[in-house]
């Protein structure tokens, strides 16, 4: 699986400050550390970058290219900044992201710079309500991209991960369902998720349990890429296939097997409980691991 490090983000105090002051060191240190941690791509989230976004993105890309040749995922909602980043980036670019709403203006960039892009399954009327609506949006995006000569393997569909804390609006089930028929609906296309969003709002020290468990659930359907916390070493092991026993446990529970807590290790029991919270079988609360 392709892992995209999420940590270079303007929302972080250190990185936000460094970007503002054009101070390369903290950004380069973090880029190096992410690369060493095993990330395949680095996500550069510079936010909406309304003021001089093009100049800003060029500087960030060049700053990072001085210390690593990892491919970059360019993450901004400013199209000028996006194009500047594509121009400056010497390695393969991943555009993060394009949705139906602005595809007319943004898809040409994919072609022009021979990039890949994350196709965000956000509909014209907002969040899709189920897996079928995601399929319709994906097909629309794919047809439009094909018309412009973009091949399916450049499209990474993001079914949109939402926080489990907000139970009623949880998208876990529709996301998994969409993943299960992605290959039939948009053959040859890939998938990518912003994984950490699933644990947004949960206590910080417990977030990795939700992130890792959800990753394993998505792996059941062959997830291609995930934007992740580069420093969650257990998560990286899982993504690299080094925890097959956990993967099998999670997938069995997804298939309806009741976890036998007495026979599980403490670690396994935590993953089992987290699967049940994510599927909605057990209602989320901050103490879900203690129950």
């Amino acid at each position: 699986m392709i892992l995209i490090g999420e940590n270079i983000n303007i929302m972080s105090k250190v990185i936000g400050g460094a970007i503002k002051e054009k101070n390369p060191k903290p950004i380069q240190d973090l880029a190096r550390a992410e690369a060493e941690a095993g990330m395949d791509y680095l996500d550069l989230n510079i936010g909406p970058a309304r003021k001089a976004g093009d100049e800003l993105m060029t500087w960030v890309v060049n700053t990072i290219q001085e210390v690593t040749d990892k491919p970059l995922s360019l993450d901004t909602t400013n199209p000028m900044a996006m194009e500047a980043g594509l121009k400056a980036n010497k390695s393969k670019s991943l555009i993060n992201s394009i949705s139906l709403v602005r595809m007319e203006e943004e898809l040409p960039l994919v072609k022009k710079y021979n990039a890949d892009f994350i196709g965000l399954l956000w509909g014209r009327e907002g969040m899709p309500r189920d897996a079928s609506e995601r399929a319709v949006i994906a097909a629309d995006l794919m047809y439009k991209a094909n018309e412009m000569g973009i091949a399916n393997d450049s499209i990474w569909f993001d079914p949109i991960v939402t926080p489990v804390v907000n139970v009623e609006a949880s998208q876990v089930k529709p996301c998994l369902e969409f993943m299960s028929f992605l290959e039939d609906v948009v053959p040859g296309c890939k998938s990518a998720v912003g994984l950490s969003n699933v644990s947004n709002g949960a206590p910080t020290h417990l977030r990795p349990w939700l992130n890792r468990t959800y990753l394993m659930m998505l792996m059941k359907y062959g997830l291609h890429a995930a934007i992740v916390d580069a420093f969650d070493t257990d998560l990286i092991k899982i993504a690299n296939g080094e925890r097959p026993e956990l993967l099998s446990l999670v997938h069995h529970i997804m298939d309806g097997e009741k976890p036998d807590y007495a026979s599980l290790s403490e670690e396994e029991a935590k993953y089992a409980k987290t699967v049940r919270v994510l599927t909605g079988e057990s209602l989320y609360s901050h103490s879900w691991l203690e129950l």
Partner: peptide
């Protein structure tokens, strides 16, 4: 908020 309701019952139990 249903999650907070559950959480408070857990905390009272604890």
């Amino acid at each position: 908020d249903i999650n907070l309701a559950k959480q408070l019952n857990i905390l009272l139990g604890n």
